[in-house]
Design a binder for these strands. Structure first.
Lengths: 252, 252
DNA sequence: CGTAACTTTGATTAGTATCAAAAATGGTGG
DNA sequence: CCACCATTTTTGATACTAATCAAAGTTACG
């Protein structure tokens, strides 16, 4: 089942965040993997599942979330083309959250063991994958701020800006013009609000001329004003990284 | 400035989460470092600072947080004995958040470069440090849920349980009996509430016989009932990890 | 074309914020 | 050891954001 070219979105994303040698690139492309197509709404894995594989998004959108005793749900992250949904599975044994397809989805499923071994053999690949999880951690921190200290309107605007920038970076759309991968109920679950209130806020943003909508597609009239409304500063999405030589020097 | 024994809290925490060979242990203990004492309230670093060092807590408590345009603050994490505050600095260049001492604090400051080189030379150490950041990521996800989908009382109870379990794991106190390292205003900044409301909630928890307080010390009357009130399941604090052999096998 | 999922609307309620000020605590220097 | 000051905690009154409940439209899909 070796179809290296299908892992290109992963390599592209990794290369965007850290330099990647040809050898590393080839090693990643040669990882054993299987392509799986998943319909919208289906679970990729559930809390408590054993972590035997890593999933990489090839097309479509997925989210990770946790369910609470009362049945409410908190979406923790949205994943798109090139994103690893659970790269941490190379090291962890159990899933502490669920993953679900938001749209029709195509993922590459890579055995966690293969990634673990590749990291052991190639410190530079390990570093690159680590950087990838650090960027996700940075996004997670920003979501924490969003939920903790921003009001509904600012929260929604912030999320809409983030989705725009990330889709643009993944080559899927323009930052100010894209198809919303989330329903209003899912937007609510991502922002800690109710679907009804999300609807009000979207209506309000439209009334103020910040966005227009038709069908699921979203249009920002003025990116700058929108970013202002969402207190959005994209720095956290593209952190620069140290370039420590892979070959040890002084420590030995 | 080689005083290896002072990094023991870090090694103890790492060893608690993943097996650590004697050689790895010694390599970590031999990292160059400087001990710094910091008074309560002082900043360790600020958003935008260059990430040249990694800080490890030896005693006392610290937090990381972000400040918003309106002056409000969201605490992102609480760090205690043995915790790395910013291990990710081995790979990242810029801080995207602030770190501040919550109490009188003692930290070991390790050059980021030294950690980066150690990780390159010893994949098993890299793996261990990565696991550490993955656990912090797991805590961050739980905080996201806390802020997004739990009401004030549940949020506070959850945080109090987490602080108990982590202090117990660090050998600082019993899970149900410890000195709160946060003021009520800081609790508010960690839970996305106001100090006034935190006070109400604490009063309520006390009225229901769940906790008693005198001075800053907190006493849980019934751990189980308290964990229930906070929807607290400690799994996320102690995830198990895969044990992939450090020596490459099949991939080469 | 029919049905299920999603969006929109309106009325009411609940939870938490805001503002203001008093009481308690903790640390400091005399 | 006490008096003083700054910080923290507590109390109360009021305002507002967002939740809840219910139902009608609308869209997307098979």
């Amino acid at each position: 089942l070796l179809q290296p070219s299908l892992l290109l979105p992963l390599v592209a994303k990794l290369a965007a965040h850290a330099p990647l040698s040809d050898a590393d690139r080839d090693a990643i492309l040669s990882l054993p993997h299987e392509i799986v197509e998943i319909e919208a709404g289906r679970y990729l894995f559930r809390e408590g599942d054993r972590a035997t594989n890593c999933n990489v998004v090839l097309s479509g959108f997925a989210c990770t979330h946790k369910l609470l005793p009362d049945g409410s749900r908190q979406i923790l992250a949205v994943h798109m083309k090139g994103d690893g949904i659970d790269l941490q599975n190379a090291l962890m044994i159990l899933m502490d959250h669920n993953a679900q397809a938001l749209t029709a989805l195509e993922v590459a499923v890579i055995p966690a063991q293969a990634i673990g071994e590749l990291m052991n053999g190639r410190p530079s690949v390990a570093r690159t994958l680590w950087i990838e999880t650090l960027i996700h951690a940075s996004i997670q921190r920003e979501w924490t701020v969003n939920l903790g200290r921003r009001d509904a309107r600012t929260r929604i605007a912030h999320l809409l800006c983030e989705l725009g920038i990330r889709q643009e970076a993944a080559g899927l759309a323009d930052r100010d013009r894209y198809v919303l991968p989330l329903t209003q109920e899912q937007l609510a679950d991502a922002t800690g609000l109710t679907a009804v209130h999300v609807n009000c806020v979207l209506k309000g943003l439209a009334a103020d001329g910040l966005i227009t909508r038709e069908r699921r597609s979203l249009n920002m009239q003025d990116w700058h004003r929108m970013a202002d409304s969402g207190q959005f500063a994209p720095d956290y999405l593209l952190p620069a990284q140290n370039d420590i030589p892979t070959q040890p020097s002084s420590w030995a």
